[in-house]
Design a protein around this nucleic acid. Sequence first.
RNA 1: GAAGCGAGCCGAGCGGACGCGGAGCGGAGAGAAAUCCGCUUCGAGGAAAGUCCGGACACCAAAGGGCAGGGCGGUGGGUAACGCCCACCCGGCGAAAGCCGCGGGAAAGUGCCGCAGAAAAGAUACGGCCGAUGGCGCGGCCACACGUGAGUCGCGUACAGGCAAAGGUGAAAUGGUGCGGUAAGAGCGCACCGGCGUCGUGGUGACACGGCGGCCAGGCAAACCCCGCCCGGUGCAAGGCCAAGCAGGACCGUCGACCCGGCUCGGCGAGGUCCAGGUAGGUCGCAGGUGCGCUUCGGCGCCCCGAAGGGCUUCGGCCCGACGAGAUAGAUGUCCGCUCGCGACAGGAUCCGGCUUACAGGCUCGCUGUCGGA
RNA 2: CGGGGAGUGGCGCAGUCUGGUAGCGCACUCGGCUGGGGGCCGAGCGGUCGCAGGUUCAAAUCCUGUCUCCCCGA
Length: 123
Amino acid sequence: MPPSKRRRLSRSGEFDRVYRDGSSHATRYLVLYTFPRRDEEREEVRLGVSVSRKVGGAVDRNKVKRTLREAFWSLSDRLPDKHDFVIVARSDIGGLIEKEGTAGVTKSLEEAMDASFGGGRST
RNA sequence: GAAGCGAGCCGAGCGGACGCGGAGCGGAGAGAAAUCCGCUUCGAGGAAAGUCCGGACACCAAAGGGCAGGGCGGUGGGUAACGCCCACCCGGCGAAAGCCGCGGGAAAGUGCCGCAGAAAAGAUACGGCCGAUGGCGCGGCCACACGUGAGUCGCGUACAGGCAAAGGUGAAAUGGUGCGGUAAGAGCGCACCGGCGUCGUGGUGACACGGCGGCCAGGCAAACCCCGCCCGGUGCAAGGCCAAGCAGGACCGUCGACCCGGCUCGGCGAGGUCCAGGUAGGUCGCAGGUGCGCUUCGGCGCCCCGAAGGGCUUCGGCCCGACGAGAUAGAUGUCCGCUCGCGACAGGAUCCGGCUUACAGGCUCGCUGUCGGA
RNA sequence: CGGGGAGUGGCGCAGUCUGGUAGCGCACUCGGCUGGGGGCCGAGCGGUCGCAGGUUCAAAUCCUGUCUCCCCGA
C-alpha cells in the first residue's frame, strides 16, 4: 500500500490540465476527474481536492477534504499508476458525511471509479 | 423562595489505536541537496468570524504648507491610538436594582415642512367678536328765532376704530391650567407649572439649587451649513533578496517628463507610456511582546465609615512568573472504552488594542424587592 | 488575505444624491380589429423596495447593524 503523504496537486496549471484533458464521472455527492500522465518518470498517483464555499464554512470544508482524502487513499489498491485525480465536492456531501461518515463517501467514490476505469486493479 | 438586574469565568474530560502540519535529533544513500525511515516535542478561539474603527510595520525622495475632502461630537479622566473604556451630568423607560441615547449650535445664513387647514414661519390677511370712544340714522327730553342743534338719554348701524380668546385641521399654530379683569379681550394682573435671560452659591467641568427680571425666539443639522478637535496615500498579494525565461518596436523626456491620491504652492531628478514577447518558482518578511497573570507601591474615580482606615474599579512603575502554531490547494480528525448535564457557534494566514455579530449548556460573586413564606 | 459594487412586480431596469405620488419595457388576463394565428389598439392584474433597528410628523430614499450575490488585485 503506498503511503498517502503529500501526493497532492498544488498548482493551478495541474488542475487545469486535469479538468481540460481528463475524463469526468459524477455522482450525487462528488465529481471525479481522471487524467493519465505521459512522458514523466514518476509513477505515483496524485490527488487534488476542490471544495467550494457552497459546501459550508471553513470547518465544514476542511472536514470534507479530510474525509475525501481518507476515502480516496483507502481505495488505493484500485488506482492505476501515473494518473492525476481531482475530486470536486458537491453541496449535498455535507449531509452525507453527517449521516453515514467516511463509509458513505467511500461508496460514492467507488461508484465514480467504476464508471471511470472499471473494476479491480488492472495489471 | 420564585422572578428580575449587573459583573466575571468555563465552553467537554480521561485512556488506547491509526493518521495530519512544523521543529529538533538519529539512521539509509556518497558528504551538506532531493527522497525515505525511526524517535522526541509543539500544534487554533472567545469569538480565531464580520473587516467596522484605531495603531505597529513596510513602500511611496522627505511625509511639507494652503484649499478642497473625510471623520468625530454632553463633561472630566484613561490610552501608543481610537468612533474604545471608566466615572459623572442631562433626557427617556422601569416599582426598584438598573437599562437605553451619533447627546455641540436652529437669536450667522440658506433650504424643507406633502395632505388637511384661515394661516406652516414675522402673524398678516380670511372668517369672526365688541359697541366703551368718535361718526351717521331714528326716537324721547331740553333750548329757542318753531324747524333747527351746540346739550343730554335710549335704540340701531358697523363708517372710523378696538380685539387676538374661540377657528373642533394638523406631527407641529407665538406657553398650559385656574381666578380676576373688560365693551369685547389679551401675561393686562395674580397663583402654580414650563421656557428664556441675568445674578449669586456649590462643582475641575457638563450642570444643579436659589433670587430677580420679563414674556421676546415652532420643528428638522443621521438637510446644506457654522463651531471645536482629528486625519498624507497605499496596504504583507506591503516590501527585500535569489533563480528561471524572452525579442524587440513606437512615442514622450533632463529646454525637467513621470511622480508626490484631487487643485495649488513647493519639491524630487531619469526615466515614463503603449504594443509585442517571456515568467508567474524559491526564500526572507513570519512571531517574545504598545500582549498575559500574581504580589506590592503610587495616582484618578466611586462606595462604606464618627475618625483612623477599608472595599471596588482603572491606569502607571518595580520585582517575580507563565507563555515554543506559523501553514502555502493551505495542518486538529476517524474508530474503540469510560464519565456527565450527550457537547453550541465555529478555525489561524503580518501582528496588536477595541467594537459588532453568532453561540448548547454550566459556574462564581454582587444587587433589587411588583409576588409568596416565616 | 486585501480592495470595491449591487439587492425594487415573474424577468430586465428607473426612482435614492435633493425624504411625502413606487414608474417604464417585456410577460400575464380580458375586450376589439381578422375566417383563424401572428401583429396592432384599448383596459386590467401584479411590488413586505433583501432583513432588523434608529433619526424624522413621515424612510425605497438618511444613519447603524446584518444576510446574500457579483467584480478586481501577486
